[in-house]
């Protein structure tokens, strides 16, 4: 798309070649506004490489069309820049909108804690070791410490009772969110399926109040309490 230097190898460049031919004719016709070069380049820009036929077609209406084409292109460029600027500002303002930041943080809390609650209610005695490691991954603070202290106890218990548990989140809502402190409280209702060696897997409902904390790896559960009913 860059303009070629005047002396160029004829054989290797057919667009340029025809351009030069036209240039010659143009000059003979009065040396005026003949711009086959422009056409050639414009066609290059449009990705077309049609050669002589197109060139000649363009040559017919050249004197009027060319400055107009340039003006139109300039106008389109200005409009494109304005549109880009407008969307750019829209992006910038969306990224710096306090409300939107809070809304996104809220959605992040819901997504992270929802996944964490499922993880925390999932264990299979056959994969207990990695399941309990997952518990540690999704918890922090006091709860995280307690769980890591009790790690062996949890493993022994799961092995002893041959526990298999899974859960899904039925309802979840953030009741408090402090973005500065990076803390949140939530209310959650879980459908839990729990089975042991002695009991068939049975569904139950678990209502929980949850405290969450923001960490370097997203939001984690720092406390969880069952609501007595």
């Amino acid at each position: 798309m860059t303009p070629r230097p005047s002396p160029r190898p004829r054989a290797s460049d057919d667009t340029g070649d025809t351009g030069d031919t036209h240039n010659g004719t143009g000059e003979q016709a009065g040396g005026e506004v003949t711009t086959p070069e422009d056409t050639a380049v414009a066609e290059d820009a449009a990705g077309a490489d049609e050669g002589v036929a197109a060139e000649q077609a363009a040559a017919g209406e050249r004197p009027a069309a060319d400055p107009r084409a340039l003006r139109m292109l300039a106008a389109v460029a200005v409009v494109a820049l304005l549109v880009a600027g407008w969307f750019g500002f829209s992006w910038w303002s969306a990224a710096h909108d306090d409300r939107l930041e809070l809304a996104r943080e809220r959605d992040t809390v819901v997504a992270d804690i929802s996944a964490a609650l499922v993880t925390l209610h999932t264990i299979d005695h056959r994969t207990a070791r990695s399941d309990v490691d997952e518990w540690l991954r999704v918890t922090t603070g006091k709860l995280g410490e307690d769980l890591s202290k009790d790690r062996q106890l949890q493993l022994d218990r799961a092995a002893g009772t041959r526990t298999v548990a899974s859960a899904s989140v039925r309802e979840l809502a953030v009741t408090e969110l402090d973005r500065r402190l990076g803390t949140a409280r939530l209310l959650a209702v879980l459908d839990v399926r729990l089975g042991t060696r002695d009991t068939q897997p049975a569904p139950s409902r678990s209502r929980l109040t949850v405290q969450a904390q923001r960490t370097g790896e997203g939001w984690k559960i720092s406390a969880v309490q069952a609501v007595s009913s």
């Binding site: 860059t2 303009p3 422009d38 414009a42 340039l70 460029a77």
Partner: peptide
């Protein structure tokens, strides 16, 4: 002029991309 048109075309393409 060819250079200007090429630059304008490039500006249009880049600006459209940035806008999207």
């Amino acid at each position: 002029r060819a250079t200007i048109m090429a630059v304008l075309a490039a500006v249009i393409v880049l600006a459209a991309g940035a806008a999207v």
